[in-house]
Amino acid sequence: MNTAAQDIDEIFLNPGEFHFGHGNTRISTLLGSCVSITLWHPRRRIGGMCHYMLTERKRSANTPLDGRFGSEAFELFLQHVEAAGTRPGEYQAKLFGGGNMLSGPSGGQLEIGPRNVAHGRQLLASRHIALLAEHVGGSGRRKLHFDVWSGDVWLAFPDGSDAQIKTAHG
């Protein structure tokens, strides 16, 4: 689909934010140790992106979902998947981020990024969602654009020599 720039609905996610949509929507974000998951339904051409900072928290049943936590951002995805009359296994996922951006008191790297990545993989596997590609780890920041109309993800990673790139085909 050829989409003119003026027809694109641009959404920018800050840490903890989430968006699910359709049509000519481009969702963008900037990542360090945080993780973004994109979900896309290839037949319906709907999907979304989350930007979470930590894996999970203790939460009571009446506490609203908070997209800063991977488990709760994923629950937001599941709510939108159900509302669209679709099933999680019909979606394709891509996973980004999890860089080592923070140092601990002794100067060593904190493991926030790698924990976020592992948690994202586990959440997707728990619902049998195909993980088609990932760009994770390393120490640089990532700029991400997800075109909901096509499922394409565009990534800028200027410090990218030490990140792991993986696709479903290799």
Rank of each mutant, 00 (worst) to 15 (best):
P42T: 07
M101K: 15
K58Q: 07
I165G: 04
G138C: 09
L144H: 06
M49T: 00
Q92K: 11
L132W: 08
H145D: 11
R44C: 08
A118I: 07
H145N: 09
H41W: 07
N14R: 09
K143R: 15
G107E: 00
Q109V: 03
F96D: 03
G70A: 11
H119C: 10
H169T: 13
I46Y: 01
D159G: 11
M53G: 01
G140V: 09
A83P: 05
V81T: 02
T55E: 14
L144K: 03
T55R: 10
H169A: 13
N2M: 12
W40N: 00
P105C: 01
F18C: 04
I46C: 09
A118R: 10
H19F: 13
Q92N: 11
A125C: 03
N2V: 12
A93M: 07
R115S: 13
S139R: 14
G99L: 08
P88M: 08
I27S: 03
W40E: 02
V35M: 07
A5N: 14
Q6R: 13
M49C: 05
L30K: 14
L95H: 00
Q92T: 08
F12G: 00
S161L: 12
G23Y: 10
V81E: 02
L144R: 06
D66Y: 03
P15K: 08
S161R: 11
Y52C: 00
L76P: 04
E72T: 04
E72V: 01
R44Q: 13
